[in-house]
Amino acid sequence: MSPGELPQQNDQPLTARKAGLILCLDCHKVLPKEMEGEHCPRCGARVYSRVPNSIVKTWAWVITAAILFIPANLLPIMQVDYLGRIEQSTIMDGIIYFFQEGSYGIGIVILTASVLVPCFKIIGIVLILLSVQLHWKSWLRHKTAMFHFIEFIGRWSMLDIFVIALLQVLVHFGNLSNITAARGATYFTGVVIATMFAAITFDVRLLWDD
């Protein structure tokens, strides 16, 4: 298909790619197809019709996130020393604790931010990747919306880590009481970072390609 050609079929909507155009993702300048791989004359960023190796990179990040997700949830994330009594708790311990205490609001927030969101992100991205590779063309609009949502909430998954970091600094009373991050926190951070990178490296336009 040469640039400028009209689409042959009506059920195949015309895309910029079909029209032989490239959008600079940084300054949104529309460039001809021939500029592929070169620098945008306006902002100097490299322009691609589709982000190269996007699928592979995203897969790699998502798999990393999925693997790290297991120790992040199984290992204790926080260690509380209270009068010499050391207690380590995993994410789920904390959630169960809040639910048992009747603090359902906090429990739900932590459950959402620490378990549901990473889970949702991993599953969501895997689903999108599979859609691209297996050419599942249904619900494209919803999938796109989901992807943007995943991109948006990525940063909120760090809530847990922030809380632990804050507590570690605030609760520091020598022998009386201390809070420190436990091993699980590292893995959890890894999960969050990996899912964020997965979202960044994915080119959502691939969903719409034939």
Binding site: N53, K57, A60, I63, T64, I67, I70, P71, G190
Partner: peptide, 18 residues
């Protein structure tokens, strides 16, 4: 093989070690 696969590989190694 894209070098990006080192990441899941590292994750796997950590997981396996754990």
């Amino acid at each position: 093989v894209s070098p990006i696969w080192i990441l899941p590989a590292i994750a796997l190694i950590i997981g396996a070690w754990l």
